[in-house]
Design a binder for these strands. Structure first.
Lengths: 201, 201
DNA sequence: CGATAAAGTGAGCAAATGCTCATGTTCTAC
DNA sequence: GTAGAACATGAGCATTTGCTCACTTTATCG
C-alpha cells in the first residue's frame, strides 16, 4: 500500500475526475464484477499506477462515487424541503418525492449499479444519509400534523414511511412501468404516505 | 463444458443437496464474491469435479437456490391466500403479509445474500414470481372491493402496492428495527395498503 | 538554472478463480 | 461375475484480478 495521496495540482484533480467518470461508465456497462481497476484505468486513458495513487482500493473508487452522488442528492433534497415547508402538506410531500425521483434519475447509471450490483456489506441501504434526512423531515411533519401520536407509534410509522418512500422512488426512477405516468405514481405515493401516516389504525 | 447431468442415483441427489446447503452457508458468510466454486465444494465435502457434473456454472448453483426458495415461498403464499379469501379484507391482507414475512425469514440467509450481494442483471426484482402471484391476489381484491376504479388506475395502484408490500416485508423480515414489534409493523402495512389502494386520490 | 517534489507510467507478480480431464470407484443389470 | 454406466476425485491449467515498484516526465520555486 503506497497510501492514497490527495491531488494538489489541477492536472491530477482532472485525472481523478476522469477516473470517476470512467468508473461510472464501466460500472454501468459491465457491472461491479466487471469493473476491474485495470479496465477503469484503460477506459480513463490513465495508467493503473496513477489510479492507485489516488485510490488505495477498488472499493474506494465506489465509495467516492457514492459520496459525490449522495452529496448531490442531498443538495437537491434539502433545497426542496426548505421550499416545501411553506406549502400545504400534500403539496410538500409531492414536491419532495418528485425532487427525489428526479435526483435519482439523474444518477441512474450509478444508482442502478449500486442497487443491484455492488455488495453493500452489512448495511442494506443504498443511501443511508438520504434516509436520515428524509426521516428528519418526516418527523417534523408528523409532529405538526399528528401530534396525538405517541413517540413509539410515530417511530414505527416513520420507519415504514422511509422504506416506502425510498423504495418507491427508486423504483419509479430506475425501473418505471410502461404506460403509467411517473407524476401520477408520485401522486399516489404522496397520498399513500399522508393517509397511512396521519390517519390509519 | 461437460454439460450438466441430472442426478439419478440417491447418492448423487444427496450430493446435490449438500452442495446447495454449502452454497447457502458460503453465500451467507462470505458473500457472492467470496463464494468460489472451490470453496463451495470443499465446504460441502465434495470435489470440484463433482460440483461441475451437476452445475454447469457458478451461477447455476444460485439459480437453483433461487428456484427452490421461490417454490417454498410460493407454497406458503398460495396456501395463505386460499385461506384468506374467506376472511374480512383487512384480516386477509394481514394474514398474507404475515405469511410472507415468516416465509422470507425462514430463508433469511439466502434472501439477504440475494437482496444485496447477487448481481441481478437486468431485472431488479429478487422474487419476480412472488410479485406476480401477489399482484394476481391484489387484482382480485381490487376487483371485488373497489370496482369503481378504471383499469389503468387499478394497474397503477397495484404496481405501487406490489413494490410497497414486497420491499416492506423484506425489510421487516431481514432488517427489523429494534424496539418495534413485527406484528405491529405488518398491521400498519396492511392499513397502508388497504387505505392507499381502496380510498386515496 | 537546478533541485525537489508531485504526477504519471506500465510491465509484471502473487494470488485467486472458474473450470477440465485423466483416473479411479461404486452402482446396476444381465 | 462382469460389462458398462453413473459417480466421484483433485491436481492443475488458463485466465483474470488487485496491486507494486522501479522508473520517467512535468510542475514549482529559490
Amino acid at each position: 500500500m503506497t497510501g492514497r495521496r490527495r491531488p494538489v495540482q489541477a492536472r491530477s484533480r482532472e485525472m481523478v475526475d476522469r477516473i470517476l467518470e470512467a468508473a461510472t461508465r464501466v460500472l454501468a456497462t459491465r457491472g461491479y464484477a466487471g469493473m476491474s481497476t485495470n479496465r477503469v484505468a484503460t477506459e480513463a486513458g490513465v495508467s493503473v499506477g496513477s489510479l492507485y495513487r489516488y485510490f488505495g482500493d477498488k472499493d474506494e473508487i465506489i465509495a467516492e462515487l457514492r459520496t459525490r452522488c449522495t452529496a448531490d442528492v442531498m443538495a437537491d433534497l434539502t433545497e426542496a424541503m426548505s421550499r416545501a415547508v411553506s406549502l400545504p402538506t400534500r403539496d410538500a410531500v409531492h414536491r419532495v418525492l418528485t425532487t427525489l425521483v428526479g435526483s435519482l434519475q439523474r444518477h441512474r447509471a450509478l444508482m442502478t449499479a449500486l442497487v443491484d450490483e455492488v455488495p453493500l456489506g452489512a448495511q442494506g441501504n443504498v443511501l443511508p444519509e438520504v434516509e436520515r434526512q428524509l426521516a428528519h423531515f418526516t418527523r417534523m411533519f408528523v409532529a405538526t400534523h399528528a401530534p396525538h401520536l405517541e413517540p413509539a407509534e410515530a417511530d414505527a410509522r416513520i420507519y415504514l414511511a422511509m422504506g416506502v418512500a425510498l423504495s418507491t422512488c427508486l423504483r419509479i426512477a430506475l425501473d418505471p412501468p410502461p404506460g403509467i405516468s411517473e407524476d401520477h405514481l408520485v401522486d399516489l405515493t404522496a397520498d399513500l404516505l399522508g393517509l397511512g401516516l396521519v390517519l390509519g389504525g
